[in-house]
Structure formats: structure tokens, C-alpha cells
């Protein structure tokens, strides 16, 4: 489970799902752009973690979960993805002042 200082993004996919691969690459690209080391990215094979996927409300692929919450149930637009990630980020002291 993510702690308060990190963001965990999980891409729920299944082998053979083209959209899942694209979603993963899309998230990776946004993370590269944000260059935030506190963000962890994990690809989850639904068949391996079926109970976890069902618990989170995943009903189809790809599913994008941010900090334990299902945020996207299909491939999001890059801007929507960026906004969703940024909304989870904790402002630094400099940003707060």
C-alpha cells in the first residue's frame, strides 16, 4: 500500500491486451515528463491478482489505479492522466509558501 509520500500507479492488464500496453507506455511517458521519483509504476496481470482487481472495481482492461483508487477504466487522454497524477502529488515546502 502506498504511504503518504509516494504515489503508486498500477496498470491492470492481461496478456494479449494491446490497449493495456499502450496505456502502460502512455503512463510511463507522462511520468518521464514529470520526473518525480516519488511515483511508483506497477503493471498488474489481472489473472495473477484477480481478487485484488475485483476488490478495486476493475471490470475490463486497461484499468488505471492511482493510490488504490480506480481512476480510469479505459485509455485516458494524456492531459487527464497528467491532471490525475498531479492531483495526488503533495506540494513541496516551496510550493506551499
Amino acid at each position: 500500500m502506498p504511504d503518504n509520500t509516494t504515489i503508486t500507479i498500477e496498470i491492470f492488464s492481461v496478456p494479449g491486451c494491446n490497449k493495456c500496453g499502450k496505456a502502460f507506455q502512455q503512463v510511463k511517458a507522462v511520468l518521464t515528463e514529470l520526473a518525480d521519483e516519488s511515483i511508483n509504476l506497477r503493471r498488474v496481470n489481472i489473472v495473477d491478482e484477480l481478487d485484488y482487481a475485483v476488490e478495486l472495481g476493475i471490470r475490463a482492461t486497461p484499468g488505471i489505479v492511482i493510490n488504490g483508487v480506480l481512476v480510469f477504466t479505459t485509455m485516458p487522454r494524456t492531459e487527464a492522466l497528467r491532471r490525475a497524477i498531479l492531483s495526488q502529488q503533495i506540494p513541496t515546502n516551496q510550493e506551499k509558501s
Binding site: V14, P15, G16, C17, N18, K19, I46, V47, R59, A60, T61
Partner: peptide, 8 residues
């Protein structure tokens, strides 16, 4: 849904 969406 996985079954219908999977190519493998």
C-alpha cells in the same frame, strides 16, 4: 470482459 478483449 477479459475473454472478449484478449487476443491471446
Amino acid at each position: 470482459n477479459l475473454c472478449t478483449g484478449s487476443e491471446e
